[in-house]
Amino acid sequence: MSRRLPETNPSARPNRYRFSKYKKPLVLLTMAAPTAIWLLLLRYLPMGGIVLAFKDYKVNPRNPSFISNLINSKWVGLNNFKFLFMTDDAKIMFRNTLAYNIVFIILGIVIPVAFAIMLNEVTKKFVAKAYQTMMFFPYFLSWVVVSYFLNAFIDGQYGMITAMQRAAGGDVTNWYTTMGPWPYIIVFANLWKNVGYTTVLYLSAITGIDSTQYEAAAIDGASKWQQIWYVTIPNLRTMICILFIMNVGKIFNADFGLFYSVPMNSGALYPVTQVIDTYVYRAFMVTGDIAKSSAAGLLQNVLGFICILTANGIVKKIDADSSMF
């Protein structure tokens, strides 16, 4: 039916929707309602709990409910944030968190985009499908399971690499106390697990590109590389920008399992694996102080929020259509 209606040329598509503001927003409001109500109840209602970060949380035993406890607890200003900056470890964990995330963001755009474009060029469709399915597999697995695999290779007693080293008569590396290789292992593990998933996002975006654009380009005599450069990449621009902005927002949050489970929680590796989230977790395990962990979370979020607004602002300057809001 109406599916076949429009036969317009997308390359000549106007940037702005031309007709005036929609007169009857009611129908659209009903569409937004279910999610909006959900967000209100499950996200905004609990946000009152953010004040926890500024309180010395104590229970009020005469009326021990979270809300009454919260109201009755003393305000302590920024006291709960102090533990993050107490020692020199703070520098290390902030450095690690930021450095790893920057690498993840850059490689997390370049490699999946390249893979998606390459997959798109594979002429044998079943091969493309098989590759793509296989690449998605690591995403099914939790970090704990990933840590088993890695351990199966580098374990100091049972590991396959260790066994090979032994067979060759060489020195056996104790991987879990040797810092050198870990930055690479961590970056690789992260890419390995997430590339397939991000590739799917870009691939779906490529699939959604109107083929008439390629046809037009082909008729104009564009080579394959030119088609990729002038048609595919511009069409992916929005997706790249959105994913970039969202990842920048999480630049102070680390993937806990990657930094905790994969190195098997090994102390000797802290200088290269300690990130904000693992530090807070280890602190929480001994103190059980929920006010401190929520303070840490809030700090990460506020910093992330600032980053996301900055990134969005920059993207907006360059290409208003690709910005998030």
């Binding site: 499950l42 996200r43 209602l45 609990p46 009152g48 709990g49 926890l52 927002g249 979020n301 809001f325």
Partner: peptide, 20 residues
């Protein structure tokens, strides 16, 4: 847009969400 985006960054934490 902002209504949903904001919750991506900020949350009330585990316990308040649990209570709700």
């Amino acid at each position: 847009n902002f209504f949903s985006f904001f919750t991506m960054i900020f949350g009330g934490g585990l316990v308040p969400t649990y209570i709700v």
